[in-house]
């Protein structure tokens, strides 16, 4: 492991032993991982692995049963101005259908301290300038996703957290998302992105946190993971073959 790969106390996101129990069933049991600054970290795992629960607990929307999630050194909810620290896209369809894109952004702008000029900049950034006055109810899924990203960026945060942003996106939308995430990270931003579709993020993540059945089964750089994994059906190691291999190992160790 390279020295830069060790977790630091000043890492932007540090999750430690997070546990969330719903009526005596563990949604996540023991989630520990670190997100490095300026990198794109993929929180990857099958549906029901606990990705959404983890993200919502990190952001104070769900109260963890145990464990901590520190964002820039403190819990998200204790930040003076949380949406200026973290932008989150948890539910792309979260918008009043009667609102236009601009009305939607103006509704959440005060909490982020964003003015109308910022809203116009963001609409341009997510390619929605032409649709600014269109009702969100008429938006395609890709447009809703981009509006949700613009909403998350209102406070100009340096950390972006996205839950399954690829869901329902067509290849064009997916390509846009990958380009966007890369340029955000290249600009010094930190990204944590969850997905159950391992291949769709393989081209863009630097660091991977693999979770299954509520526990982290692997954390490290994508390159190191692929180096250590056996070749899959494609003749080379892929994120998918590495993941399946890890699942198999975890099962046999049980």
């Amino acid at each position: 492991m390279l020295p830069s790969d060790e977790p630091h106390h000043h890492d932007p996101v540090v999750v430690t032993a997070l546990r969330k129990t719903y009526s005596s069933v563990d949604a996540v049991r023991d989630i520990t991982f670190t997100v490095r600054r300026g990198q794109i970290t993929g929180l990857l795992g099958p549906n029901g692995a606990g990705k959404t629960t983890t993200l919502r607990s990190m952001l104070g929307l769900s109260k963890p049963t145990a464990g901590t999630a520190l964002i820039e050194g403190r819990p998200f909810t204790t930040h003076r101005h949380p949406v200026r620290v973290v932008g989150a896209v948890l539910d792309a369809s979260g918008a009043a259908p009667g609102h236009s894109a601009i009305e939607h952004l103006r509704t959440y702008a005060p909490l982020a301290g964003a003015d109308d000029a910022r809203i116009q900049t963001l609409l341009a950034e997510v390619d929605l300038t032409k649709a600014a006055r269109l009702r969100v109810g008429k938006f395609s899924l890709g447009m809703k996703q981009r509006l949700a990203i613009a909403t998350a960026l209102l406070g100009d945060p340096k950390i972006l957290i996205l839950d399954e942003p690829g869901n329902g996106l067509d290849p064009q939308g997916m390509a846009w998302l990958r380009r966007f995430l890369r340029s955000y990270a290249d600009g010094g931003g930190t990204v944590l992105v969850s997905s159950h579709l391992l291949t769709e993020l393989e081209q863009v993540v630097d660091h991977v946190v693999l979770i299954a059945s509520g526990v982290v089964i692997h954390e490290g750089t994508l390159a190191a993971l692929l180096d250590s994994a056996p070749a899959g059906s494609a003749g080379r190691a892929t994120l998918e073959s590495a993941f399946l291999n890890l699942i198999e190992q975890t099962e046999t160790h049980r």
Binding site: V86, G94, A96, L111, A112
Partner: peptide, 18 residues
């Protein structure tokens, strides 16, 4: 209930966790 129905409760409580 409008925030819950539209799925915007998340945005509301992210912006103001108190």
């Amino acid at each position: 209930t409008r925030d819950y129905r539209n799925g915007t409760a998340t945005l509301t409580f992210l912006g103001e966790p108190r």
